[in-house]
Design a protein around this nucleic acid. Structure first.
Lengths: 335, 335
DNA sequence: CTGAAAGCGCTAACAG
DNA sequence: CTGTTAGCGCTTTCAG
């Protein structure tokens, strides 16, 4: 592989001139630049990113740390992020935290070792020590989905309260009164927000007697909770699930019990599921504009990376309003 | 950040001894090693991968190049690959080729610039020039899914002929006679194999008059082809779709036409769809053991990476037998 | 506007 | 068994 010195020799200049030509062309005469470029092309010169990174103390890699790589929700995001990063000449290195604070921190520290330029993070930790550790990486970090309280990071998410509100209102309008919220963990930011949206909507409508059961954002607990719920004496006529995998766990339980959806119970959920449009029942859900989310998060990050002085700037925050998609999994109560 | 020299100073040895301690501890006395290690710990020393990579001419990154990052099929694979790579101290850098040969090559060349240690590749090209270019990267490459003809790469896939055979036989056993194959492009390795499996099974059963329509592995063309197919005078009683997204395109068309599945037409497909178990109809399909696929591919790659002498070894190949999962989208003809 | 020089942090002969 | 030395390929003051 041709090095910068080979190019310099062939162009009859010094290696620093070659370097300058590529990094800050304005500091080199047009004529020299041309010579350098053609020499580079002739030799098929490609700068060695490892050497650049070592020297600059910063690579052109962006980390993306998520709780679960196999979640399709994440694939759609990744696709867009990769596209935008590539366009700015960054690569994406992915890592999974298994939604665990310790693993997340370990992974981040490993990425920091690689001198990544910045990181898109779905955080799963909390507390002062956590925030402190995050800060010590001294890395541009954009947080997604879950807000790190006490931290000063850019943050992009969709409006979680409105999400459950939309679903709950939809069910109320359909005449449902016994609505149960199959929630995420209350100690997760998103879980708590979604619970608040549900509670607030129910209270505003004059209901004070409603159930919230924790499905842990996972399919199996959601299945189990639904089983319990639907075999009680006074079972709900509608369920609001706090995410897609719980909705599907819930649906599985419903089917296994021989209960029909939506005839016997309506189901509405947060987050889209792949190919929802062709399944039956089609879930009534609120979906996020994932590619918009990806675009905003990526641009936040790239801005911070390319404007080191921006460090002093206050963190920015974007909350996207999700969209209600009415499917066939909800129907008017009693009719 | 502490460097190797800081550690050397504190341990009262030279930096090469420190380096040795971490790379080949057997070449250092136990006593020295201990001193070095405790100095390293005291200083919180972590080797700089960029410097290591520069020196060795090889980073500890593994590239994963796929056609479509948003395909959930790929997420499941990535999850397992990342887990295994992490265990051996490698990072995954992902890139998308949009199933396009030129983009794939561009992406690979960019990854090669990064001195990645190796690459998991879902190839999308063909021809001698393509193979030649791939070879010139001089990189351990494991190919997945699509076999590169004329290349000498490790290869892992599932048995595509058996996949369509299983589905077709299942339909034949159910009494279907007018079976159409909604195929992938015949110029894709997988597309061709799946077609062969279908043809062979039909012929062996004594049928020579069957249709194969190309849905390009994509939902929209599959939708359009299904529309044509199902509005013809003699429509099929069963369809074998060559992948999951076409199956769903097909299902969408069927629904829009007001045709019922499985009552009016049976549908069977290759590849699982997320949460198939809870949708209705549940697709009858053959699924691959993705985590097994991931494990084999990753171990092939890691072996090549860590045994440079293995270069002379002949390429290995694993063909996994998929598993038939009978759902509710297929039923006995006429009954 | 261009070149010389110093080094980023690490590794790997080669001596000792 | 350990240290010396010479870079890997690039960037970046600092002079000229």
């Amino acid at each position: 592989m041709a090095t910068i010195r080979d190019v310099a020799r062939r162009a009859g200049v010094s290696s620093s001139t070659v370097s300058l030509t590529f990094s800050d062309a304005s500091r080199v005469s047009a004529e020299t630049a041309k010579k350098v470029r053609s020499a580079a092309v002739a030799l098929g010169y490609r700068p060695n990113p490892l050497a650049q990174g070592l020297k600059r103390g910063r690579s052109r890699m962006i980390g993306m740390v998520v709780g679960d790589l196999s979640n399709p929700f994440f694939g759609s995001l990744l696709k867009e992020v990769e596209r935008l990063a590539k366009r700015s000449n960054y690569n994406i290195i992915v890592a999974e935290s298994e939604a665990d604070q310790a693993q997340e921190l370990a992974v981040l520290s490993h990425l920091a070792d690689q001198r990544i330029a910045g990181c898109l993070l779905f955080p799963h930790g909390r507390g002062a020590a956590y925030v402190e550790t995050l800060n010590e990486f001294d890395l541009p970090i954009v947080t997604l989905d879950h807000k790190v309280e006490g931290g000063a990071f850019d943050f992009v998410c969709s409006d979680n309260r409105i999400a459950t509100s939309m679903l709950t209102e939809h069910l109320l309008r359909l005449g449902h009164r016994r609505i149960t919220h199959l929630s995420g963990p209350a100690h997760f930011w998103t879980g708590a927000e979604r619970i608040k949206g549900f509670e607030h909507t129910m209270r505003s409508a004059g209901f004070t007697d409603f159930d919230i059961v924790d499905g842990g954002y996972m399919a199996d607990p959601a299945y189990a909770e639904t089983m319990r719920l639907m075999t009680r004496s006074e079972r709900p006529t509608a369920i609001v699930a706090a995410n897609n995998v719980m909705a599907l766990g819930c649906l599985a339980a419903i089917k296994d019990l021989g209960v029909r959806c939506p005839e016997d119970v309506s189901l509405a959920a947060i987050d889209n599921v792949p190919w929802n449009s062709v399944i039956d029942p089609q879930l009534t859900l609120v979906e996020q504009d994932l590619s918009r989310l990806a675009r905003i998060a990526t641009s936040y990050l790239l801005e911070r990376i390319e404007n080191p002085d921006i460090d002093a700037y206050p963190p920015r925050e974007t909350v996207l309003t999700p969209r209600l998609v009415v499917g066939t999994s909800t129907k008017r109560y009693g009719s």
